[in-house]
Design a protein around this nucleic acid. Structure first.
Length: 510
RNA sequence: GGCCCGUUCGUCUAUCGGUUAGGACAAGCGGUUUUCAUCCGCUAAAGAGGGGUUCGACUCCCCUACGGGCUACCA
């Protein structure tokens, strides 16, 4: 097999949806697996849908999840340009080639005439499309006299170029995921190849570009499956069938609750991001949340996405990018759509957080710490991370769930206050505070033995005292191992907080 | 409506004709941590329905049902 060349070809009409990221990921994995080339091509043939910033967003998003490209808009390469609007002048000759061969034709119908045709066909119970049957009743170079066509073209009358689909022909191709798929050309319409504005449609552009860029495998979403036979026909028309890429149509990512593919709107409605990075709509100013800003670890997101619709035959769940590359095969991609599961995404994130270096996490938290005007050195923050990370799904939660490491708690868990706090306990804790003030080694082990002997001397169950102690110091019912927590907080802070709580914490049940 | 694709625990999935149908998330229960959100253990949980083919079908074929995608001078 010649060198594998794949492409990810999004259109810059807005932020890249998580399903698009997965498509890009599968392309990347496949390319890397086979020592091939991964290309980023921008499909911006619809100028009316251009959204400023979208292209940059796509590049940044993919970079964030660890997807690299060997060729593309942002890195260049020998088959450029990689933006279809920059390739505009290349397409017309291919459309002309098809016309010469009799596989395409000029069509002069106005939008109104097209609507009329569709209405008429629908009323007659026929399929409402511009096809081998209906085209004979329309205004095109197949029905109009040659001189009139020439005159219209010379006049600059508006026209499009349409593919001339054969009336009845079986079109079969082998999809690497689904096996043989067949269509009959009688069901296909004469798709527009060149639009009135001189731009090609996706169909023409993607076939021409894939051919010119020597793409060997097209890995794209299932929504493209219905137009695949058109593309196959185009390869046939051009005489490129021998080098036609192999197709793989990926199953869709579905909404978690019910049905339908996951869409832009679902994310914030259901409380999770559908975009890799936060996106601000330049037109409306509306903000859609992103995985990055929500606190997800990029390698965890890649791992989670890879397992949505693909799995090797073992029982592993955690894969680094290189392990994904190693294990990846197209044949192991499942055929059916996958519902997105936010709980699993969180679980993956926790796994990656646990595996991550504490100091690195602490460093990433610095901005958040500074924003709160907390003043602690990196060493201290690293220790906080070490204690807190197993308790949270996201690194940034360390700053909220573990805020007591940085400032005196202001909120105290009401339930615990009511259930476990009273004057006796409070004064006992103050006594305990006095004892630990004498400790020369303010370490978890010493604290624990001191605490236990103290409880014994007061003839109380250590458990009765432990939660109030935690409450006084952190305000919370739960948290990291208590004596390690006290050690990190330090003698002065712990004693101060116990004394403060004794004076200020009141249970109404008293 | 038409065309196409799909259908294993609630969810993501393993199984490529012969298994006690496995794993993970979530759930429930229990344990550890004399607290807890972590951790550990256990439990419950599935082949859409109907026909074939076969000694044998979750696996192959057909039909039905259900789900999804597409049906633009959008990608």
């Amino acid at each position: 097999m010649s060198q594998v060349r794949v492409r990810f070809a999004p259109s810059p009409t807005g932020p890249l949806h998580i399903g698009g990221v997965r498509t890009a990921l599968f392309n990347h994995l496949f390319a890397k697996k086979h020592g091939g080339v991964n290309i980023l091509r921008i499909e911006d043939t619809d100028q009316t849908r251009f959204v400023p910033g979208a292209e940059e967003y796509i590049v940044e998003s993919l970079k964030w999840v660890g997807i690299e490209f060997d060729e593309g808009v942002h890195v260049g390469g020998p088959y450029g340009p990689y933006r279809q609007s920059d390739r505009k002048s290349m397409y017309r000759q291919y459309a002309d080639m098809l016309i010469e061969k009799g596989h395409a034709y000029f069509a002069f119908d106005t939008p109104e005439e097209l609507d009329e045709m569709r209405e008429r066909l629908k009323a007659g119970g026929m399929s409402a499309q511009y096809d081998a049957v209906s085209r004979m009743g329309m205004k095109n170079s197949l029905t109009l006299p040659a001189d009139e066509v020439a005159k219209k073209l010379a006049n600059g009358d508006a026209y499009v170029i349409r593919a001339k689909m054969p009336r009845k022909e079986e079109i079969r191709f082998e999809d690497l995921i689904r096996g043989w798929v067949s269509f009959n050309s009688s069901q296909l319409d004469d798709k527009v190849l060149m639009k009135g504005d001189g731009m090609p449609t996706y169909h023409l552009a993607n076939v021409v570009d894939d051919h010119l860029m020597k793409i060997t495998h097209v890995i794209r979403g299932e929504e493209w499956l219905p137009s695949a036979p058109l593309h196959v026909m185009l390869y046939r028309f051009f005489g490129w069938e021998d080098t036609m890429p192999k197709f793989s149509h990926l199953p869709l990512i579905l909404k978690p609750e019910g049905n339908g593919k996951l869409s832009k709107r679902d994310g914030d409605r259901l409380g999770f991001p559908v975009f890799p990075l936060q996106w601000k709509d330049p037109a409306t100013g509306e903000i859609s949340s992103g995985y990055k800003e929500s606190g997800y670890e990029p390698d965890g997101v890649a791992n989670m996405l890879a397992l949505l619709g693909w799995h090797p035959s073992d029982n592993r769940e955690i894969f680094s990018m290189s392990e994904l590359v190693e294990a990846f095969t197209i044949e192991k991609i499942s055929k059916n759509g996958a519902k997105f599961d936010i709980d699993k995404a969180k679980w993956f994130n926790h796994q990656y957080l646990m595996a991550k270096d504490n100091k690195a996490i602490a460093q990433e938290l610095q901005a958040g710490i500074e924003a709160k005007s907390w003043n602690f050195d990196l060493e201290y923050c690293t220790k906080v991370v070490a204690l807190m990370k197993e308790k949270v799904s996201f690194a940034k939660e360390i700053l909220t769930a573990g805020s007591f490491f940085f400032e005196k708690p202001t909120l105290f868990d009401e339930k615990v206050v009511q259930k476990k706090w009273n004057h006796t306990i409070a004064s006992q804790l103050v006594d305990f505070a006095k004892e630990i003030e004498n400790l020369t080694e303010f370490k978890a082990a010493e604290l624990e033995t001191t605490f236990k002997t103290f409880a014994e001397s007061k003839q109380v169950n250590p458990g009765q005292l432990m939660q109030p102690l935690r409450l006084a110091v952190s305000g919370q019912a739960g948290g990291p191992p208590i004596f390690e927590m006290l050690e990190l907080l330090g003698k002065t802070t712990v004693v101060e907080r116990i004394e403060w709580a004794q004076k200020n914490l009141v249970s109404v049940s008293q």
